[in-house]
Nucleic acid binder design. Sequence first.
DNA 1: GATGAATGAGCGTTCATTCAT
DNA 2: TATGAATGAACGCTCATTCAT
Lengths: 212, 212, 212, 212
Amino acid sequence: MDREQRRAQILAIAAEVFAEKGYHDAKIEDIVARAKVARGTFYLYFEDKRGIFEELVSGFVRQLAETIEPIETVPDSDPTRVMRELRSNLLRLVERFTEEPAMAKVLFSAAVGLDADFDQRLLAFYEEIAELLERSLKQGEEAGLVRPGHRRIRAFCLTGIIKELVYQLILRRAVSEPAELVDAMLDLVTDGLFTDPVREAVRASSAPRATR
Amino acid sequence: MDREQRRAQILAIAAEVFAEKGYHDAKIEDIVARAKVARGTFYLYFEDKRGIFEELVSGFVRQLAETIEPIETVPDSDPTRVMRELRSNLLRLVERFTEEPAMAKVLFSAAVGLDADFDQRLLAFYEEIAELLERSLKQGEEAGLVRPGHRRIRAFCLTGIIKELVYQLILRRAVSEPAELVDAMLDLVTDGLFTDPVREAVRASSAPRATR
Amino acid sequence: MDREQRRAQILAIAAEVFAEKGYHDAKIEDIVARAKVARGTFYLYFEDKRGIFEELVSGFVRQLAETIEPIETVPDSDPTRVMRELRSNLLRLVERFTEEPAMAKVLFSAAVGLDADFDQRLLAFYEEIAELLERSLKQGEEAGLVRPGHRRIRAFCLTGIIKELVYQLILRRAVSEPAELVDAMLDLVTDGLFTDPVREAVRASSAPRATR
Amino acid sequence: MDREQRRAQILAIAAEVFAEKGYHDAKIEDIVARAKVARGTFYLYFEDKRGIFEELVSGFVRQLAETIEPIETVPDSDPTRVMRELRSNLLRLVERFTEEPAMAKVLFSAAVGLDADFDQRLLAFYEEIAELLERSLKQGEEAGLVRPGHRRIRAFCLTGIIKELVYQLILRRAVSEPAELVDAMLDLVTDGLFTDPVREAVRASSAPRATR
DNA sequence: GATGAATGAGCGTTCATTCAT
DNA sequence: TATGAATGAACGCTCATTCAT
């Protein structure tokens, strides 16, 4: 087993251990024992415990980012194509998580609240996603696909939906299939929750409040 | 300062410290130093570090639960009233978080990934919320207010939206006012993201895919 | 309840607690809780934990010492009277222990191995007993009642017998009645363990080894 | 120094420290300082403080048990041989203690009154010894070597004699040689303490008391 | 490179004792 | 005199990291 393989093996095992036990309950001892290497060997490949954890998280974050394909939304885009591409982006993203359940658990559990420093980095990561979504919403508005609205808040709403669905998909076994998840979610953000009469009523009652 | 006040003081300071540093980086020393009491005094009021943390989290969770008022949705409910009550529930909830930013941070950060045991409890808490939402969606459907759809997934989507908005509202200073947050979110779940042409197109294209 | 009564009450309770838990596992808290006084009150009556323990032990040791009545063994003493007095001394001693089982437990358990200093004091106490026994054996020899022999070692043997019998009488519930204990013990030290043929044989075989 | 040596070294030093200071006053720091290893090293070899102490005691108890060789006492045994074997058993036992004075001190001092649990174990150990002695006395009686009598009490008397002699032999430097100890003790249990006239008198006076 | 024994800083917790009321 | 809240020194134990072999 050459150097890169050994490194990758330890990395993969560390992901499992962090996923199972969380950052603090995962001991270097647990990792090396499962990898069947000596304690010292670990430090030949990784700077320290924090180092391997950051590498794990940032590597997974990079993978997630690569999963997303930009969607072109020029003014006269075909709405059907845009929706199709959006759907497949979401599907690939959700599937990325289901393919790496350990890393999903690490990202949503072990990496949260680790310390002030790490929290900042996670926040920055979600900020990037939110900004990508914001830009997409802007393009969508400009292309006449998206109803105008508070883009930043919407961006966070969408982030929240995805995070929670994946969180539930991973942490419990069940919920449902990625495709079902994505379709239900798209249904929600496409048509909203309510029936037309409700919508009418809401619109009528909020009209006097003027345009916000 | 009587017994209850002293207890409350230490509890409040512990919330701050846990919020700032996370569970593991928060040392008992930090708490007692900031409370200007001796190490031993801490243990007069709380079982141990884990104990005060659990009390903090479960107390806050209880407060949150009390914030939510049940909404009656009999078949001929007035949609306007329902929406108004929904909005004020959400508003009170979000305000509860903004009034206790430290606890919000603790709940969303420090309490996550603490250990397998605590994760289970958090999951159970979110499960309860999801079940409440599911029941509400069911009543809404039966009252003709809510479009039929996958209620469980929708419940998680809504949970995710609220969590993420509060998370962003707290962890960064910015985003915006609770009311603006709630309104933007309600706008999203009411009318959806897209313009009517897109909706039409989606409906048309997905129709042949048969009934899903 | 006047000062002396209160003091005596705490002392008695402390004896129980020390007996049940041993010196280190007995907490001041245990004592004051059972005595229904405040922590601070304890220190109004006793210097410190060590202080009350020492008082307890030395008080009991004094009681034990007072139990023993000197036996007059002038050259022509009536052996029957001497044996009767010896027996009643032993009986009173053993009964003293059974009347104060808590203090017996303290003396034989809690007070042992407490620290180098306390061990010295216990040793000194047993030394005193041994010296008393030694003097008695000397008088007994001079009065022609006791076979000549290594008096110091014999003194320790006798001490050991008494200690062990009481230890067993107290720490287990059973064994038997004080009188039975004392009689069996007196039987042993009077006639020895073995039958006459054995004694003859031993004497015969050890004779060539010269006078010991 | 290989693993077993290091372990043995720490064990031996711990015995010394426990012997000198007692269980509670012996700090892990004392042990590691004297062994010239780091605090952590201690925990590589032993579970915890209680663990090393129990290992020490149970190891020594096992050694003691192995010291004793069974004595065959068939009906026509040669009394001289039996006494010789008894004497050498006792001598080996006493020498075992003198060879390991630290462990003797631990067994008789530090291990006593440690807590309710440990006390039970010590009691069980002495119970075993008493049972061995009881069985021996029974065989001795059946072989016509031992005068009939209360075997259980006698067993405890003998245990007490041995304990006290060793206790005194170890805790003070003095007393005397193992051989002298054993011989004086055997002399006592063989012929008893008293001269023949006393024995006669006792027998005469207690006769009317009838058979007990 | 690989090993695993050794290190030691660090932390949660206990509890005898004090002292303001 | 009595109280009991407050104190803080002390200690057992953990575990990430180092380093001699």
